[in-house]
């Protein structure tokens, strides 16, 4: 196996374009497991982990551009205010060792339906910035996951960064696992309320072939919040609205039975999580209500 260590991002892009069969590696927390079990035997590894260009983040025009090589530990430490749901999700990933190595870029490229970064990115309406010698493009997150462990990257493309709208309202993430740490999600749910744009975002993990956005549930809730004047008055929606939203969110999933849990349990848990996260989100809205509309989230 060959091992390539480009010095710059553009070298990396060039190497990948030259030979699309080279396999990028960042934290290695997915890839090395695959190699260890001989599930993959890549001809060459392209080590991205030392490229400074991928290790930073920047806030611009209300969005955070998060380098593909930023680790979970740094997200927890540096981005809890701008990206609260992603930070909560990062806190649930693996163990300290894994959070010190694992990156959002790696999580996206693996595209597991259980990837913990995915639901918050879906709920926030992020986009994935991909690059090759042919140029750069932004892939809306909703179009990025194309199947189980499949994504929309072309063979010559690398993920450079993810552009994520910063929070303009409460964001929540909730993950059910069989144990209280170091666990792959049995099912997970992310919620985002954008108080300025009056948008509701959702993301569901581990309950379908790809991470899922509960589009109808979002539309329903937006409409109810509008009709009920809840956006305007920072008032909690009626319990029936929350229940209906939770049901609709749960029915957006298409889970299966596997070693981690039964489909029926996953659907049930989703309904509970959607209901609870909505409640907590409004707790925050109500708590901060006195601070007026201009407050910064």
């Amino acid at each position: 196996m060959e091992y390539l260590r480009p010095r710059t991002w553009s070298d990396a892009v060039a190497l990948k374009t030259e030979d699309p069969s080279v396999v990028p590696i960042n934290g290695g927390t997915d890839l090395m497991v695959e190699i260890n079990f001989a599930r993959r035997r890549p001809p060459a590894l392209l080590d991205l982990s030392r490229l400074d260009e991928m290790k930073g983040w920047e806030k611009r025009n209300g969005s955070v551009e998060l380098g593909a090589g930023v680790t979970y530990t740094r997200i927890i430490e540096e981005l809890s205010t701008e990206l609260p749901a992603l930070a909560i999700a990062s806190r649930t990933v693996g163990s300290p060792q894994i959070r010190n190595r694992g990156t959002v870029g790696g999580n996206l490229a693996t595209a597991s339906p259980a990837g913990d970064a995915h639901p918050p990115l879906l709920a926030a309406g992020a986009s994935v910035r991909a690059e090759s010698m042919r140029g750069a493009r932004d892939i809306p997150i909703g179009e990025f996951f194309t199947g189980p462990k499949q994504n929309a990257l072309e063979p010559d493309e690398l993920i450079r960064s993810v552009v994520i709208p910063a929070a303009r309202g409460p964001r929540q993430f909730s993950k059910v696992g069989t144990r209280n740490a170091m666990v792959i999600a049995v099912v997970s749910f992310a919620l985002s309320l954008d108080l300025e744009e009056r948008r509701v975002g959702t993301g569901i993990g581990s309950a379908g072939p790809t991470p899922i956005e509960a589009v109808e549930a979002q539309a329903y809730l937006e409409q109810e919040l509008e009709a009920g004047g809840n956006w305007d008055h920072r008032r909690r929606p009626a319990p029936e609205v929350g229940e209906r939203f939770a049901e609709m969110a749960a029915s957006a999933a298409s889970p299966i039975d596997d070693v981690r849990g039964a489909a029926s349990y996953r659907t049930h848990a989703l309904r509970i999580m959607a209901g609870r996260t909505l409640g907590w989100a409004w707790d925050e809205v109500v708590e901060r209500g006195g601070e007026g509309r201009r407050q910064c989230w």
Partner: peptide
Amino acid sequence: GSGGPGRAPDLRRLPGGVGNTTRGE
């Protein structure tokens, strides 16, 4: 479990842990 106003709950003391699944509900 709510940790009181303005305070984050200590999720490690709740079922589900840092998965953030309950605040005592």
